[in-house]
Design a protein around this nucleic acid. Sequence first.
DNA 1: CCGGACTCCTGGGTGC
DNA 2: TGCACCCAGGAGTCCG
Length: 270
Amino acid sequence: MPELPEVETTLRGIQPVLQGHVIEEVRVRNASLRWPVPRTVQKATGQHVLGLTRRGKYLLIECSNGGLMCHLGMSGSLRICADGDPPRRHDHFDLVMDTGQVVRFHDPRRFGALLWWDPPWQSHELLRELGPEPLSGAFDGHHLWRRARGLRGAVKNFIMNGKIVVGVGNIYASEALFMAGIHPARSAGRISADRYQGLAIAIKDVLDRAIRRGGTTLRDFHDSSGEPGYFAQELLVYDREGNACFQCQAPIHRKVIGQRSSYYCPRCQR
DNA sequence: CCGGACTCCTGGGTGC
DNA sequence: TGCACCCAGGAGTCCG
């Protein structure tokens, strides 16, 4: 479920509960997530949380001796609750704070993760080779154009590849490509520098607006307070197969690219 | 190196 | 109601 805006929304929600407080207990109810939750996560016990960072779709909870790394996968969410609130089905771990507040991880599909990193987090093998943050100055059209030289795969897969740029998932890839007028199946290496400039701007714009709306709730995304995100109302193509393009009225198409549904306007996107 | 297929899971929706 | 089937917001891994 969650792409960059949903992870960022989650981070902002749990930040005040964690930052500056002590993790009293890391209570793992079900360690069988994407990777088995390692015993090393107990290094967080008794530690002050210095701050929270997001790197792509990974949430980093920084302590003085390292930190926790959490990924929400397809169906994960973090909710704030009180110690003593009975866990529901699929509530796999809790971060119990000294304040009595709890950050609780819920994930039916268990594609999410909880890991420990030793400092510096930048050298963790899951993070080391990640591309730039899309909302940073390090990301622009020139970066995309340069990295696309010689590539023949679909541009949609290209921008969803975390080694190229992080945080762009299936929804926002479709949206940004529509905004830039680029067909999702076009070869990444056969797009001009100018069009990549437009695509980079579209990616920044759609992610920024989605964050301001609290993310996209299609089925089950909820923020740390249990609130849905409101960006679904602003989606231009995603999940709109057969509906009229807002620009030209032609029906929106759906096509599977890289084993994922892609939505686009066959007239506006080339 | 690149690209595509497969994989890990559960649950919701649909059609018969 | 039951059941089979399809689909789902991620992304590491493997294979050609």
